[in-house]
Design a protein around this nucleic acid. Sequence first.
DNA 1: TCCAGTTTTCTAGCATCGCTAGGATTGCTA
DNA 2: TAGCAATCCTAGCGATGCTAGAAAACTGGA
Lengths: 188, 188
Amino acid sequence: MTQRQRRVRDRTERGRRIVAAARELAEAEGWDAVTTRRLAGLIEYSQPVLYSHFPGGKDAIMAAAALEGFTELAATLVAARPGGLGGVAGSYLAFAEAKPGLYDAMFTLASELRFAEDDTPEVMKACFAELLAVVEPTAREEEAGALTEVFWSTLHGLATLDRGRRLSPAHRDERLALVVDRFGARGD
Amino acid sequence: MTQRQRRVRDRTERGRRIVAAARELAEAEGWDAVTTRRLAGLIEYSQPVLYSHFPGGKDAIMAAAALEGFTELAATLVAARPGGLGGVAGSYLAFAEAKPGLYDAMFTLASELRFAEDDTPEVMKACFAELLAVVEPTAREEEAGALTEVFWSTLHGLATLDRGRRLSPAHRDERLALVVDRFGARGD
DNA sequence: TCCAGTTTTCTAGCATCGCTAGGATTGCTA
DNA sequence: TAGCAATCCTAGCGATGCTAGAAAACTGGA
């Protein structure tokens, strides 16, 4: 029976390798370069093996990568919490810039993931909760949720537009300061 | 010689039809459904004709659509200017919601377009200028540019995350009010 | 009016994509 | 060791973006 355990362990390990290979390749050459054939080659198995791990095919693999991304983002934001709103904002943008492929999977290409429904994964809620934690002190109680959504949108927009070379590199630091200025503690 | 003129006129007209068909199809079924074969069928010509109009292929067609999008967005924002910052913000979001396929071409899938370089199309600058126009009065002179970029990022983030069902529909109006609150005229 | 020459258009095909059916191979059980 | 079950791979399907080379249409001069 221990052999059976080893087999399922090998199997889950192989599943991890698939997602890891996909992430590496996506980070290096973009998700368009992540084809099932190249992925199969990287893990040194044939194509159909991928579908035994992820019946949803490539989309499911990307969704798995996206989930990992949310887990890592949540951890990043937790670590940045002591830095306050500015620290969290900076960490969020640094995350998106350091792992653009992963960030794409999480937001741009997540045709598989569903949010705001009942089946929203816990890790996604955790990310939102971390943003809420630094926004809440600056907001009236009843507007905290909506304000966190706006704050999040600002960070996401900055990350996305910056990646598309649509923002001036010269204003980089100034933008972050302005985010803190506009979303930080108010005078009233 | 007037026949030659008619021929070039027919040709440019056909180019317009290609982009129009692409936009319609993208709006109806998404850009994945916009294939060169379906496009050729819609304009009642064969596939290679597309490449005589757009040597860059599908990407170039999407870029052409994106350019049209920026023209229309600029016009929308100009019309909304009297409404002030809130009016412009609302119009921007309404535009993104009304033409999600076009908005995707402009931002998410614009692998062809280059911004922030010297070859930034005028229509893109026009859009930015309209945003700047409503942000400028609320900002110190030296921070107006960067603040406009942040404002734009907020709008873009709201549009994108909302489309991905990542924001609560219940907070919709509240979010817009908060944008005005945070980016509008300050007390100092 | 007819015939070269040029331009335009189409047919056919290439390489690649995501994905899957069915047979071959392997490992487990009795 | 024989039979069974799980696992894996070969081969192939339809569809994609794109292109070369043949066919068709139009042009302008005898």
